[in-house]
Write a protein that binds this DNA or RNA. Sequence first.
RNA 1: CGGGGUGUGGCGAAGUUUGGUAUCGCGCUUGGUUCGGGACCAAGAGGCCUCGAGUUCGAAUCUCGACACUCCGACCA
Length: 482
Amino acid sequence: MAEQGKQKKLVEAITSMEQDFAQWYTDVVKKAELVEYTSVKGCLVIRPYGYAIWEHMQRIMDEMFKATGHENVYMPLFIPESLLEKEKDHVEGFAPEVAWVTHGGQEALEERLCIRPTSETLFCEHYAHIIQSWRDLPKLYNQWVSVVRWEKTTRPFLRTREFLWQEGHTIHASAEEAMEETRRMLEIYVRFFEESLAIPVVTGPKTESDKFAGAVTTLALEAMMHDGKALQTGTSHYFGDGFAKAFGIQYTGKDNQLAYPFQTSWGTTTRMIGALIMTHGDDSGLVLPPAVAPIQVIVVPVAMQKPGVLEAAQALTERLQAFCRARMDASANSPGWKFAQHEMKGVPLRLELGPRDLEAQHCVLVRRDTGEKTIVDLHALEETIPQLLQSIRDTLYQRALENQKRHTYRCNSLEEIKRELAEKGDGFVYAMWCGEEACEDGVKEATGIGSRCIPFAQEQISGTCVCCGKTAKHMVCWANAY
RNA sequence: CGGGGUGUGGCGAAGUUUGGUAUCGCGCUUGGUUCGGGACCAAGAGGCCUCGAGUUCGAAUCUCGACACUCCGACCA
């Protein structure tokens, strides 16, 4: 009997992270009911539970955008080929992965239309129409839409052909102001990641070869996943006046001279959900930071056929709903099944309420992050639950930060990089670089890891480039990436 | 896009070598007993074997092609 039960559990369990991290990830996204595959490659259904996580992300970020003066707009889905082609670097960067619409009904279109891979060109066309005077600047726009990039290999949330995102597009009178905006939005992302997602990030500009198609500077957020690989989780670009010149956006300044304005764009995507899974998840499934958890407290009535239990659990759930996202699971499944199920879905807190608890006027609270059980007086929940939720966020953040620190290696030579990676596994490698693309490629060639960004938090690891030995200009964060 | 693996009820698999009309576990439905870590009994329902061509009296099984998923590379949020 006992053996049979154990066997059953093994069959239904997800693959362990250690055994196969990629398979573990796929198991979690499926079993936590985040996504379902469709018949179109790289296009997934984001199921209600997964979409609810996205909605919380949206809500929190949108508030931050609005608080800094941004407005939401909506640009069309289609971009005519001629418009996409106006900025040379931009089209070269995106052309290989755009999807084209060639027919309307039965008739071939005179000019084919691409499905937006990003909307710089549409914003530029629009700005050219509406900006005439210095009084029209700045424009601080954002949109929440989906975009399409015809990726060759796809993975749920990490790389899909259609994905949801927000793209901010701003236009300013001066380069300084635009650069400041680029930094400001990066900082907003950092704050969102750290406070709401409990994910520490490394930030800094991308190298020349790695920046966004058409950008002067690309600032990136890099997060470390549990397996030591890097995931780019957001970017903020400074465009200078390159797009303005390519699209003929001009305004008349206070000095009555025509001038080109300066632009930025910045974006984050549903990839953040993937980051969440791979940063906090464990062998029991998803672990969600409370800020974006669709359910923060799951109430599980135990022995709910006993008189009064279900009613008490229902009343308690309603009471909790005044200050947190609480839900009761009164399904006919056994308590053990419910425990496992809600752990799989990453619910931060579980509240067990049974006849014994009712008699003593307390309940059992179980944290998802540590598994720790505490017995709490029913009258103290208004105080205890918010504290626990905060504590869960803090613990998740600290844990992720420790993982990042433990897997950050400071190296002085290519040999050292190879040795560290071989001995300690994937991670961030901090090493000096001369600034030459040849050496960037050289590091990739020799060690297999690529440059992620040039961290703002620079350290002087040595004076010379790890690749060529010449005088170093920057410390670069290198890593294997998703 | 290059290299591997896989595709059989909702999920996981057996069956494919040696062609004969599909089996098991979980899940699902109904009724009952249970309930503090993935409960149990009984009775049911559910499958153009990924799709398309071909070979054959006959194809899940053999041949060719397509598609999807997945892993490892190259590229990207």
